[in-house]
Write a protein that binds this DNA or RNA. Structure first.
Lengths: 204, 204
DNA sequence: AGTTCCATGTAACCCGTTACATGATTAC
DNA sequence: GTAATCATGTAACGGGTTACATGGAACT
C-alpha cells in the first residue's frame, strides 16, 4: 500500500531514477520509515507508469542512460489525495528485543544475557542518532519545516528509548523480583511445567 | 520468523488453545508488539507440533472441546535459545502519519488537514494509554518484572509521541516557514513542476 | 584485467492476511 | 429461533524480499 505513495513522494521532492530512489530512501528521516528494495521499486514504477501517475524521460548523463521519473497531473493529484486521507494508526511494530523481554521470565534464562541485549540496542540507537545528526549537519540535505518535525520525532523516540534502557539495565543489575501480580500462580506453575518437561526427557 | 517464537512464548506463559492465543496476543503489552490472525496461528501450530516443539492434549471444558498446546522439552530449549540470541535492530516502522508529513510540503496541501491528522493520532494514542492503564489495574492480569519494564517502555514511547504532537501542532498553527536549508532550490522547483503538470492538462 | 559502482529489470519464493467453510454452544 | 461466541481449520491471494541476470562505465 504505502510503497506506492512513498515512491510518489520521493519523485515529488525531486525527479529521479529507480536507482536514485533507493538511495534517497536510505537517507535521512526516510530511512527510518521505509525499506525499499529494487525488487519493489521497478515493478511498481512500471505499474505507476501504466496507470498514468508518472512519466519517464530517457536521460543521458555522463555517458550513463537512466530513466528519470516525473509526476503527471494525475500523479500530483493522487499524492495530494493520499496526503489528506486520514492516516491509519500504525500497526503493532514487532520488536524482537521487547518480545524477548516479555517472555524472559518464563524460560529461566540468564539475566545478564538480557542486559547484554539492552546494551547492544542502546549502542545501535546511539549510532542512529549520530547518523541523523551528521545528516542534518550536511550542507546539501534538503530539510523543510515538515521534515524537521519528523526528524525531531525520530530523535525524541530514540532518546526516550535510550533513557529507558538505562533505567531497565539498572533494575536488571539488581536482584530478581517476584512477579508483581500473579493471581493464578503462573510463575510457580511455569517452573514446574518446565522442569517436568525437561526431566521427563532425561529419564527416558 | 517471529510468529513462531511469539506462539512459543505465549504457551510458555500458560498452555492454551489456538483460539486462546489470539485473545492472549490482543491483551496488554503483547497487543502493541504483535498481530496474530487465525490464519497464521493454526498452520503454524500444526507445523510446530510436527517439529516436536509443542504437544497437544484434547480437553473437554464445559462441553467444549479444544486442543491445549504445551511445550515439549525441545520447545522449552528452543525458546531459551531464541531468547539468548541477540535480537535484530527493529526494521523501519512504516508510519503513515510521519510519511505524509515528510511529503507535506511538496504537494501544496492544506496545513489544517495535517493538524487534523495529528490531533486524531493524539486521541488514538491517548486511548491506547488508557487501555494499558486499565489492563494494568485489572486484578487478573499477570505481570512480572520484565512485563512491567516492557509496559513502561510502551508508555514512555506513547507519552513522548503525545508531547511531540503538542509541539508540532503548535508550530503548524503558526505561519508556514520557508525551508531551512535548500541549496538546490528544490522547494521553488517543486512548485513550478507541479503547476506546469497541472496547467498543461487543463489546456489540452 | 578486475573490481566496484551505476542502472534496470525478472522470477521464485516466503509469509502473512483475507476470505471462506464448518459446527457446536450459549445468550437473548 | 437466531444471533453471538467458542473453536478449528483451509485456500486463495497479494505483497514484499531474495536471488538471479545483464551490461556498461569508472576506477585501480
Amino acid at each position: 500500500m504505502s510503497i506506492e505513495h512513498t515512491i510518489l513522494g520521493i519523485i515529488s521532492l525531486v525527479p529521479c531514477s529507480g536507482y536514485d530512489m533507493k538511495a534517497e530512501a536510505e537517507r535521512g528521516s526516510l530511512s527510518m520509515l521505509s525499506a525499499l528494495g529494487f525488487g519493489s521499486i521497478y515493478p511498481r514504477l512500471k505499474q505507476l507508469e501504466e496507470e498514468g501517475l508518472v512519466e519517464t524521460q530517457q536521460v543521458e548523463t555522463e555517458g550513463r542512460r537512466k530513466k528519470i521519473y516525473e509526476l503527471t497531473a494525475d500523479g500530483w493529484r493522487e499524492l495530494a489525495r493520499w496526503l489528506e486521507e486520514p492516516p491509519g494508526y500504525p500497526l503493532p511494530s514487532r520488536d524482537d528485543l521487547l518480545m524477548k523481554m516479555l517472555f524472559w521470565g518464563t524460560a529461566g534464562a540468564d539475566r545478564t544475557a538480557l542486559i547484554e541485549h539492552l546494551r547492544a540496542r542502546r549502542d545501535e540507537s546511539l549510532e542512529v542518532l549520530d547518523y541523523l545528526a551528521e545528516w542534518q549537519a550536511n550542507e546539501t540535505a534538503f530539510i523543510d519545516e515538515y521534515g524537521l518535525l519528523v526528524l525531531t520525532y525520530i530523535k525524541t523516540r530514540l532518546e526516550a528509548e535510550i533513557s529507558w534502557i538505562a533505567l531497565a539495565t539498572a533494575q536488571l543489575e539488581g536482584p530478581p523480583e517476584l512477579p508483581l501480580r500473579d493471581k493464578q500462580w503462573l510463575a510457580v506453575l511455569q517452573k514446574a511445567r518446565r522442569s517436568k518437561a525437561l526431566d521427563q526427557e532425561t529419564h527416558s
